[in-house]
Design a protein around this nucleic acid. Sequence first.
RNA 1: UAAACGGAAUCGACC
Length: 332
Amino acid sequence: TFLYNVLLKVFSHKSSFADTFALFVRMKRSGSAFPDEFTYPSVLKSCSSECRLKEGVAIHGLVVKGGLCEDMYVGSSLVDFYGKCKKLLSARRVFDEMTLRNVVSWTAMVVGYVNAGELDAAKRVFDRMPERSVASWNAVIDGLVKAGNLTEARKMFNQMPERNVVSFTAMIDGYAKEGDLESARALFEEAPEKDIVAWSALISGYAQNGQPNEAMRLFIQMESLNVKPDEFIMVSLMSACSQVGNLDLAKWVDCYLSQSSIDAKQDHVVAALIHMNAKCGNMKRAKSLFEEMPKRNIISYCSMIQGLSIHGRGDEAVGLFKRMLNEGLIPD
RNA sequence: UAAACGGAAUCGACC
């Protein structure tokens, strides 16, 4: 049981739902290991990450059968699971029925309401919390940010007893999306700790607000500090590069990407790569990237079709669109 | 051995 639990934890963090669930099934069938209160949180986490409602509900049933409803970890995981799957009534029911709640249970409930856009309900729960952690504050701040209420978000940010890098990043993202890059930048400089996500929020902010050169500059600065870029950062960088439209720069980024350990097969990465090459005038490369994909999806088709349109190759663009329909993809 | 919070592509009418 111990061994399975450790494995399930690792799987729930790094693998797909299918693999994690398969492992759980194997555990149950093994006859030698039995799911306990340590097992279910990992399995439920995996269900939440892909919104697997049916399976999660089945797990809930097993929890009840196993008499593990009273456990705080299991209960909090259930609240989180239902919340992430937008089943707020179920989340609330589990939450209300819990005999023991801790700050994680409360925060999970707040997050559920935030993700459903029910900010008022989220705040009501937040106000009733017997104690709050940084994550609880961050959850509400992020809700306010996503609702576009930067003023209120900033008030809470200033008001909270302590801030971490997540608090800063939520605010940076909010300011950046609003186009207020000066405030975003100021907070970034002020942040005592800057991780990859904080860098990403700011870099994408510049890229999205027509300041590709500043995005590039930040990328260089980040690199010089030995922070390794990830897929998100590279996508923003490629977006910036597309805006500049410089072929040499595009080649450099393309090359940088292939030499890094970044997974260049992810949807957004390929799409950005295709778009960048198309925009910077390297249609050959764009085309070969597109054709070499084992499976094309709506995002890569989108990049390729637009690439063709930009270059006045309307016929080919329309042809590609037809091919996309033939592959059974639905345009959005 | 377990649970909660932050970042990514492309396009858009009239003006």
